[in-house]
């Protein structure tokens, strides 16, 4: 049976490599090295006007999509936020402690606004840190079983929420 299959497959393959085949005219030119092959691939894509990834809209959004997207989003928020705050420290007059003292007198400086803001800020840091541990484990080739991926995802999200709610209650002495 296996021999029969092999013979049949070889026959099919041979048909494709026959030089007279009309398929050969549409195929990408033969390249010798991986980088040349990649170059030929992208040039062919350009010629054909194929759409380019990422196709964010064509996949079903599920739990893992949200975990992964949240990781990138939290990282993006921290980087752009840090850049904006750094720029602000140069532009605005007065020192950082003076600004903190001033903000404490603003009417929006009430627990109903400050506490949720702190939970959000702490969650951003803790989620990116904890989900980052998952990424490092994957980079070492560990934790790819679907069961492990699900469990570590729940732990990262759950622990980040708990730590954020807890961290927001801490008020430093000075």
């Amino acid at each position: 049976m296996a021999l029969l299959m092999r013979l049949a497959t070889r026959q099919a393959l041979l048909r494709h490599v026959r030089p007279s085949s009309i398929l050969m005219k549409a195929a990408a030119p033969m390249a010798t090295s991986p980088s040349e092959q990649a170059k030929a691939y992208w040039e062919k894509n350009k010629e054909l006007g194929r759409p380019v990834a990422p196709h964010l809209t064509i996949y079903k959004i599920d739990w893992h999509t949200l975990l992964s997207g949240t990781h990138r989003l939290t990282g993006f928020i921290m980087y752009t936020g840090l850049a904006a705050i750094a720029a602000a420290t140069l532009i605005v007059p007065a020192s950082y402690p003076a600004w903190i003292a001033a903000i404490k007198t603003w009417p929006i400086a009430i627990p109903a606004i400050i506490y949720p803001a702190k939970v959000g800020a702490a969650f951003t840091v803790f989620y990116h840190l904890l989900n980052g541990i998952r990424h490092i484990a994957w980079d070492f080739g560990k934790g790819f079983a679907m069961k492990d991926i699900n469990r570590s995802g729940y732990v990262a999200m759950g622990l980040a929420l708990i730590l954020a709610v807890f961290a927001a209650t801490i008020v430093p002495s000075s």
Partner: peptide, 9 residues
């Protein structure tokens, strides 16, 4: 800075 920010309540 983080410490001072967290003193706002």
């Amino acid at each position: 800075a983080v410490r001072l920010l967290w003193t706002i309540t």
